[in-house]
């Protein structure tokens, strides 16, 4: 990737489009020197592996270790084969539930906290700093903290619920098929709520005071100013938060679920997500041996699923938001 740039650099620098004074710099080698290391490392360890994974997903391994062209065969296996399809759809569905819970719990809480912080209350900085603490911790640490707290062995949750007369509510949520995924999602919400909070808070701060004053002069009270003036203005940020939530949902969920529930998405695959499925497929687990080509296929499926979300965001959401802004 870095080579083609070299050829063009010698002829570059001819069109100062923005009317800036054309600056002649003797030799343009420094541009290559500045760009090459970053482009090289990024290409070799990020772009190439991605492209190579896409390529590998079109092959199948023979027992002797060589690869044969398999076209879209792996994808057909993943989507329709009895051994794979169930796991794949289950993992994808769980990922979507995870995304949904983040959208309806994490982001509204983030919005509420940001809105309150933007009123500049006393100790606002302290609240902000402390609420962000869980976001800094490793997902592994967070997972174990909650595993201990929710553990029936320790009984902390029961004691606390008992303190407010709700001890009967307590269940080993992480161990039950019906509640494990929701519990894991809420743990993740607890950890990451600081990110939407900060992004939305920053957006709220950037709204010019004149707009708020004008609305106030028009007789709007604080609540209506928030709904009618501030919220529409921060819609682009809410869009960014949504797409970040979507992408993060496919990658970050692995660490948490692997730490708490293991690579099998216990109990009984009820917390299995694309990340754990990829890990299991690629490295093998128990009776199943590792499969590079199916692993690459699952990673590529994740790539396409993320691509669909990102395109949806870029084409639909962002374009509409921009029109709204006008």
């Amino acid at each position: 990737m870095s080579d083609p740039t070299t050829e063009h650099l010698t002829t570059a620098g001819k069109s100062p489009a923005s009317g800036r004074k054309k600056r002649r710099v003797a030799g343009r080698a420094h541009i290559v020197v500045f760009l090459a290391p970053a482009v090289l490392i990024y290409t070799v360890f990020s772009i190439y592996p991605l492209v190579e994974s896409l390529r590998l997903s079109l092959f199948d391994g023979l027992p002797d270790g060589s690869a044969v062209w398999n076209g879209l065969g792996n994808y057909a296996t993943l989507l329709f084969d009895a051994n794979w399809a169930g796991q794949f759809w289950n993992a994808l569905w769980n990922n979507l539930i995870l995304f949904f819970i983040h959208m309806v719990v994490q982001n509204p809480i983030g919005l509420l906290l940001a809105a309150l912080l933007s009123l500049a209350p006393r100790f606002g900085g302290t609240y902000r700093t402390l609420i962000f603490v869980p976001t800094l911790l490793s997902v592994v640490i967070v997972g174990f903290i909650w595993e201990l707290i929710l553990s029936p062995l320790w009984g902390v949750s029961e004691t606390i619920l008992g303190g407010i007369g709700l001890a009967w509510l307590y269940q080993p949520w992480l161990g039950l098929e019906s509640s494990a995924l929701v519990t894991v999602s809420l743990i993740s919400v607890w950890q990451y709520v600081g990110i939407p909070m900060m992004l939305i808070y920053a957006a709220l701060l950037s709204i010019p005071d004149e707009l708020i004053d004008a609305a106030r002069v028009d007789g709007l009270n604080g609540w209506w100013i928030f709904w009618k003036v501030k919220l529409p203005l921060i819609l682009p940020t809410l869009g960014i938060v949504a797409i970040l939530t979507y992408i993060g949902n496919f990658t970050a969920s692995f660490d948490l679920i692997y730490s708490i529930q293991g690579a099998l998405g216990a109990p009984n695959y009820s917390t299995d997500v694309m990340g754990t499925l990829l890990f299991r497929t690629f490295f093998g687990q128990q009776l199943q041996i590792g499969d590079t080509y199916m692993g690459a296929t699952i990673a590529s499926m994740m790539f396409f699923i993320i691509l669909i979300g990102v395109s949806f965001y870029l084409v639909l959401v962002q374009r509409r938001l921009q029109r709204y802004e006008m």
Partner: peptide
């Protein structure tokens, strides 16, 4: 995410 290229 770079993790999608893990296999390679």
């Amino acid at each position: 995410p770079i993790r999608l290229g893990t296999v390679a």
